[in-house]
Amino acid sequence: MKKLRYLLALVTLFAFQFTLVSCTEEQNFDQIEDLSLTPTLSTGIFYLESDEASINQAGPFNSFYFQEVNFDAFNEEYVSERLLEGTILYELENTTSKQLRVTIDFLSEDGQVLDTEVFNVPANTTDIITRDVYYGPGGKSLDILINTSGLRISGNNLSDSTSVSSNENPKVILRSGAEFEFELL
């Protein structure tokens, strides 16, 4: 019986030592050099809403909406140097009886137009018009985003000033958001 206990203890010790040796391997802490962090950040940019009465009040072929907004998202060199790509998303709906044109100008710090997005919107659209504009590989130049300091948004009535939609609470709505991908390491 003593021999059996001695043999069992020896086998257990041998198995434990074998397990320790076989389950460990040399660690490579240089793997951090291969690490790449590329977060995607999402944000809203602007929101435009105008009712049909305001559009009629502006008159035919006149501007019913005009605004310049500050857009210094990439004014920090650290941020602009690490931008890999971006997408600006637009959603537009028009339940008014008006054919409209909405224009978005991307402006440099000195007021020069870097890029323009134009939406020609038919009257009484039941569907939401969506547009995704890509910047970076396979899209527009990243320099447009990096050098944009402001946005100029204007809405023009391309119709008359008397018609009224049969829709309840007719208005035009433009939503804009963006997703940007950066490389941090």
Results as ranks from 00 to 15, higher is better:
S108I: 01
N70A: 11
R82Y: 10
Q99N: 11
E93I: 15
S97K: 05
R101E: 06
T125C: 12
N120P: 03
E76K: 13
Y90E: 07
S97W: 06
Q67F: 08
T116E: 05
V102Q: 03
N56E: 11
F71Y: 14
A73S: 11
E52I: 09
D115K: 03
S42H: 08
T126R: 04
L114G: 08
V69T: 08
Y65F: 10
E81Y: 11
E77T: 14
V102E: 07
Q67H: 04
N94Q: 02
N124H: 14
N75S: 15
E77P: 03
Q99L: 09
N62P: 06
P60W: 08
F61R: 13
D105C: 01
I55M: 04
V102P: 00
P60K: 10
V79R: 08
L83E: 05
N62F: 03
Y90L: 08
N120S: 15
S108D: 05
G111A: 13
E109G: 05
L92A: 02
S97Y: 11
L89W: 02
T125Q: 12
F61C: 12
E91F: 09
L84S: 05
R101S: 06
K98V: 00
F71P: 00
S63P: 05
N75V: 04
E52V: 01
V118S: 11
E52N: 01
Q57I: 06
S63W: 14
